[in-house]
Design a protein around this nucleic acid. Structure first.
Lengths: 337, 337
DNA sequence: CTGAAAGCGCTTACAG
DNA sequence: CTGAAAGCGCTTACAG
């Protein structure tokens, strides 16, 4: 555990018998160096286990080739998938991705702190995926560093966003329920504070159902993980209701547990739908009727946008809504006559 | 999108009408500053939206107060939970956590690249959670920067590790199966290359079963997500076998799907067990019989160890095995007579 | 093709 | 309590 001093460019230069300028050029592969110098530098660097100090490098070059990502909560699978997709895409362009995540849920304060530490690291670009951060906080920094919001639509001045087309998604899954023949449907609606996405998709469901002449029973919900007992009770109390639409797969699992405990047959007595359809809950075994969020494309596109911003200063699109895909399953079926 | 130059300490100094040394002292809160200077500096910094350049700061102070984390694959929930736990703990000590993740699966090469870029950032400590990275690669860097391996036991010289007590875990869940009365049990065993943890826990299951006089049928598996069709077929072909033990919940879900398609009643014809028991698959709705990995404690302890190493140069324990807890569920029951 | 010099934005002794 | 100076480890014009 004796802390060895990390070798610097000076050490490499001494070992190779050249100047540190030569080492820098050789390692960067830019500027001219003789083949012989190149070889000696490479050998010396390897021998010493030299890893260039990114701070010193970034300080002078004013570029870090690093993208910062603020994640709302890494325990939610969406963020894990997003992170992976971003990393994969960024690597293609030679950028590194470093991320800071919240725990349980990122408070506004946490998110601001995370944002600041990423800015302190002077990342070349920032991707924010946290519903909580107010747009104004972003605007303030967006003049200095390119910022892209991933996972929700952002309307603040000068902020680019990439998100799922919730209008389309909520509409598609509601249409699926309509086509199955349901005429009385309960919808669990998220509060818009807690989840703008959940709210938007819920409203889209409601609109689509109503447009088809379906009677809609709206039940409000505070959070994806909020208790659903009451909503389930109210749904079952009305024998006319034959389907229950949830704002997420997590919520759906909670609903299904309530129904299981009460011995309610699914989809016999009640059809149930979710939303998300990726990760472990998307396994065929569960057979959840859901709607797949295009998490991969959201990540990829967010990276593309931020790199456009970094390298060209402008972006091709200010807001990009990416469509997902309906996932029919075994939890929703035509209503029993 | 006009890229504004970020304000530097010089800008703040000018605005406050003091020297940059004074600004530095005021902002760091160390060294003496008059209350008046303090106030003016704070006001100026706030006005300008000053965020200290972490690179410049790190370059001179030789400390970054940042911990680097290499994650195998952020789409696996274990890593998401680990990341969150680490972040939470590190924040308590004033450290920031930045993580680099693999995609799908981190190759040795990816992991090395990730390690190097974190070292280039001159993080104060490193936590590696990737089964693939050879111990020797770690040893090489461990002389320079404290490294802790999280999630697997590491025996390489000078490397500290924190992991689940797989011996105990495999043993406990096997004992549960024994107590239920099974006398003929199939065990899906991971290859040790793919997953040292999976292999260790599998061996522990086998040992425990055999010690109780149970007949064990070992079936090898390449990966957690590998197809399980053949193993399930072989298990069902032998009517004496009444239980099937899986190395993870993910594998278990695949097994259950095979069984569902074939219409095999669970746990009537066959009891099935998993391993992991956190995240979405741990919801009561599923009722999986499993064993909970102490992911929270692994993360917390890993952070504690790396901070000990950074601040004291030594650690209280070289290898820490943390026990998990048995989660009885509805997928395992006494065998049908 | 090469090296000496300046400078990136900070912190930290060091005088005063 | 304050500011001038040195220096962290690099890159980048600039002469040669």
């Amino acid at each position: 555990m004796n802390k060895l001093r990390s070798p610097t460019i000076i050490d490499v230069a001494r070992e190779a018998g050249v100047s540190k300028s030569a080492v820098s050029r050789a390692l960067l592969g830019q500027g001219d160096v003789s083949p012989e110098t190149l070889e000696r530098v490479l050998a010396a660097a390897d021998l010493l286990g030299y890893v260039p100090n990114a701070m010193a490098r970034g300080l002078v070059s004013q570029r870090t080739m690093t993208l910062g990502v603020v994640l709302r909560d890494s325990t939610t699978q969406f963020y894990g998938y997003l992170q992976a997709a971003m990393q994969r895409r960024a690597a293609k362009f030679g950028y590194e991705v470093v991320s800071v995540t919240g725990v349980d849920d990122l408070t506004v304060e946490d998110a601001q702190k995370a944002l600041r530490s990423l800015i302190a690291l002077r990342v070349d670009g920032l991707i924010v995926s946290s519903a909580q951060l107010p747009g104004e906080d972003l605007v303030r920094y967006a003049q200095r560093v390119p910022i892209v919001v991933a996972g929700r639509a952002e309307y603040a001045e000068g902020i680019v966003s990439v998100h799922c087309d919730e209008e389309d998604g909520g509409g598609q899954i509601a249409e699926h329920v309509v086509k199955l023949g349901h005429r009385n449907v309960a919808v669990l609606l998220m509060s818009s504070d807690e989840s703008p996405n959940g709210y938007t998709r819920g409203q889209a469901m409601i609109r689509t159902l109503e447009a088809s002449g379906v009677t809609v029973h709206v039940m409000e919900l505070d959070a994806y993980r909020a208790p659903v007992g009451l909503a389930v009770m109210k749904t079952l109390a009305d024998p006319a209701i034959t389907a229950l639409m949830c704002p997420s797969d997590i919520t759906m699992v909670n609903v299904l547990e309530e129904l299981r405990v009460q011995g309610i047959p699914i989809p016999g007595r009640l059809s149930v739908t979710g939303y998300d359809a990726f990760g472990t809950l998307a396994a065929p075994f569960f057979g959840f009727t859901s709607f797949r969020l295009p998490v991969e494309e959201i990540g990829t596109t967010a990276i593309d946008r931020v790199i456009e911003l970094i390298e060209a200063g402008v972006t091709s699109e200010k807001r990009t809504a990416i469509p997902g895909v309906l996932v029919p399953g075994r939890t929703a079926a035509p209503p029993r006559r």
